[in-house]
Design a binder for these strands. Structure first.
Lengths: 138, 138
DNA sequence: CCCGGCGAATAGACATTGTCTAAAGCAAGC
DNA sequence: GCTTGCTTTAGACAATGTCTATTCGCCGGG
């Protein structure tokens, strides 16, 4: 969204064609892409963009809190543009499809002090695993 | 534990020095080692053990349900010998230390049907993140 | 409107983690 | 002690990510 580009410009981002393209890719489809998938789509719009730039830009977007990094499998990190609404993930164990979900309740409350071992717990990440309708049908 | 070796033998495992060493490493310290850490400790006991064997053996132990694979960061997988009691993890965002924790409540119940998108949800993995006492003191 | 400084992009080497293969080794039953 | 075929081995390969030195080009000052 140009919203995103505006916010970034406001934070002193130097605007370049490459960064614009990466932002467009993330904004265009609300899915969970890997860095290399982002790169592939960026290349389609701007053939000379390099892999390092995509990685750098994604890293910056994560630091700025505009995009979330999620690791639902232990292969590639995925990037979730839905950073402004807290949510968790539901992953198909067979095809890897990912859906954003919003469980009720607050799992942070479910961790008693006696189970915190002196840690300052600030965040919790919940990943549900199962089989999606497509894979169940097959 | 020889318990573990007995169970494995009972399942038709051919017993080799390499497998014994990997089992000993996992059993010796109840921590969460990466595959390469397991390999390093295995080499200390059996210098000629190869990396592939450690990876293979770990994979077999996981398939047999004797060890759990956990991915608390998106770097290396870690192996948790505490496979027979369900639990979740608390990770230090700074040093990466991992503790097993047992939250109250069942997060599976917190996911309403309307948020399941037709998936058959079978499992949930909860990772708490925070700062451990050591890192907080530093 | 043009320049120059410095932030950003590039290509490609490098690092880490994990997988695969073909050949040699060895556990276990006979 | 043989034989069988499961295991191990070394190293190549693959996937993902990081780093570096160099070149590029955005944008504020003139």
């Amino acid at each position: 969204m140009s919203d995103l580009l505006e916010r970034l410009r406001g934070r002193g981002w130097r605007m370049t064609a490459q960064r614009r393209v990466v932002a467009e890719v993330l904004d265009g489809e609300h899915v969970h892409l890997t860095a290399d998938e982002v790169h592939a789509r960026a290349v389609a719009k701007l053939p000379e963009i390099s892999r390092a730039t995509v990685y750098n830009t994604l890293g910056e977007l994560v630091s700025l809190g505009e995009v979330l990094e999620v690791s639902t499998d232990q292969r590639a990190k995925r990037y979730d543009p839905n950073a402004h609404q807290p949510h968790h993930h539901l992953v198909c164990a067979q095809c890897g499809a990912i859906r954003d979900v919003h469980p009720v309740g607050n799992p942070l409350k479910d961790l008693p002090d006696s189970e915190r071992f002196g840690f300052t717990v600030s965040d919790v990440e919940v990943t549900y695993r199962g089989v999606c309708p497509n894979c169940a049908a097959a």
